[in-house]
Design a protein around this nucleic acid. Structure first.
Lengths: 113, 113
DNA sequence: CCTAATACATAAGATATTTATGTATTAGAA
DNA sequence: TTCTAATACATAAATATCTTATGTATTAGG
């Protein structure tokens, strides 16, 4: 089962920022693979969505980049800037709050951890 | 605080279907008000998003309508069809699963109910 | 009497995503 | 050794969806 894309909409930036908060630096393709693994294939980021978003976050000053070559193949690493770290926490907190609100609204019970 | 619209994206259909599963019939304006109250103003549905979505759900055969007049003012009640009831459960279940996945991915802890 | 709330609806513009396409390198199977 | 799949980036057209604006009309209440 893969989540309908409409569900994932709006969470992409949050996912990217959170992963970068935990991993110091990651490159685009790596992000797609890590998300795929962590979600057991339920969340599949498409390149057409990912790369433009990474560029947008960089343009906002939330991410910085370093380009490296693995052999002749280029790899572009992204890291959080200072404002990116702040933004990451904000986004995750907002999403956590959103989850609580939606759980209440949709009367969803979750198992305690 | 109001949730950024990008977060709410993709949840509108689920919210509508769930509310109708619990209330038998509701009209558009009522849905906006109930959601506003239940979420303490954090989720504010706009008419420009709501009405086209209601029409779309009706066109999909998930909702049926009855028009009534309150005085001279028209009111359009929506109810779940049989397939709408099934869809409502599916959507809520999918969303619950999505929440679990995202909580894990974003390392969000929730308080047990 | 006038404003805010109720109640519907649609359309233009903005935004974001999917799908498709493109380039190029490298690992590994046949 | 040759071909395919995976790695790794990127962009653009088409699509979907939402916001914002606008429109009509009724009704409650100050």
């Amino acid at each position: 089962m893969i989540f309908s894309s409409e569900l994932i909409k709006g969470t992409l930036k949050t996912i990217i920022l959170k992963l970068l908060a935990e991993n110091k630096r990651m490159y685009g393709y790596e992000i797609t693979q890590v998300v795929k693994e962590l979600t057991k294939d339920k969340v599949q980021l498409t390149e057409g969505a990912l790369y433009p978003t990474l560029h947008a976050l960089e343009a906002e000053g939330l991410l910085t980049t370093e380009t490296e070559y693995i052999g002749k193949r280029v790899r572009k690493y992204y890291s959080l800037s200072k404002s990116g770290k702040t933004k990451s926490k904000e986004k995750v907190n907002e999403f956590a709050d959103f989850i609580s609100t939606m759980q209440f609204l949709l009367d969803i019970k979750t198992k305690p951890i």
